[in-house]
Amino acid sequence: MSKKYMQNNQWGEKEMEYFPKRKVSNKLSWKIHHITGSFYSNKMKRTIEYESMGECLFYFFLELAREVERYYVQPLEIEVPFLTKEGDRKSWIHVPDVLVFGNGFKPTIFQIKESPQESKKHVLTNKACQKYAAERQWEYKVIYPKKLPKNILYNIKFLQGAIRKRKRFDEWIPEIMYRVEHMKGVTIDELASSFSPKVNPLLILPAIYHLIATGFLQINITKEIDQYSEVRLKKLNEELLPYLNLDGELFEY
């Protein structure tokens, strides 16, 4: 039995286990309008729904990070126990935002928030999720995507639109990779222009952005991407992955 078959079978089992446990809703729609939506995930090969712009940004982030293999939205039902004022033991069911699997980090449950919250319900929820994750040797984090640096947020939004491979990309990609390897310190504009007059540089640009978005070429992700951005043969996730792994102001845990 091949390794690829076993891996596909493993993900197939997870697809069934981690199907969405509730439908997307917008409880704050009377306060904040038009923050729910969906997009097609090239990584998951399905439509991903989100309930806030914070969720949308983080899911775009997961699409770009090559170390992320799979992510499942609203995948679990976690019981949160509490005591009533009368001392009775009760509980409610919490559905966390996303469960992420990948290379270089443990499976991680992420709760996506707009800003820090200190309510009793929030504390109880975090405690229950931490316990649930620890029992499975996973991790649990509360993340605030809007605290990502502005340039990274811009690049995530920009590159997410370049993930899907277009027709004829396969025709140009080997040559693009070869030229990047041999044209040290080349900018996006210089790389595209190097195909002229054989190919219109405007046709090459989308393929370059696609290679950046899918992690085969790297830019300085901390600077706003433009035609003067230098590209090199490294993985984009080398700069994105720390935002998944490291504690700091982006995370509570």
Rank of each mutant, 00 (worst) to 15 (best):
K146Y: 11
P201N: 06
W138G: 12
S193P: 00
F39H: 09
I219M: 15
I173M: 09
M1N: 09
K113N: 13
K147A: 06
Y140Q: 06
T108V: 04
T214K: 15
V24H: 04
I208N: 12
E114D: 14
F82C: 06
H210K: 03
R136P: 04
K45R: 08
L240T: 01
K167N: 13
K141N: 09
Q74H: 11
R66I: 02
E171Q: 13
L246M: 08
L83A: 03
F195D: 01
G104L: 08
Q227V: 05
R179P: 03
H210F: 04
E190K: 02
Y40A: 04
E13P: 01
E238T: 00
I221N: 06
K223N: 15
H210I: 12
L250T: 13
P96E: 08
N26D: 15
F61V: 04
G161A: 10
V199M: 03
L202C: 00
L153A: 02
E118C: 05
E139H: 08
L76C: 01
L124K: 15
I221F: 12
I212P: 14
L246G: 07
L241K: 10
I78D: 01
R136D: 07
E17F: 09
E13R: 12
A207E: 04
L211W: 05
M1Q: 10
H182R: 13
E249A: 05
L191Q: 03
H122Q: 14
V68M: 08
V80C: 10
P206M: 10
S29T: 12
H122S: 14
L233C: 06
Q137G: 00
I143M: 11
Y178N: 05
F105G: 12
C56Y: 09
K127H: 10
L159D: 04
G248D: 09
K4F: 05
V123D: 14
N9D: 05
I188E: 05
P149M: 07
K198Q: 06
K198S: 05
G215M: 15
L57H: 08
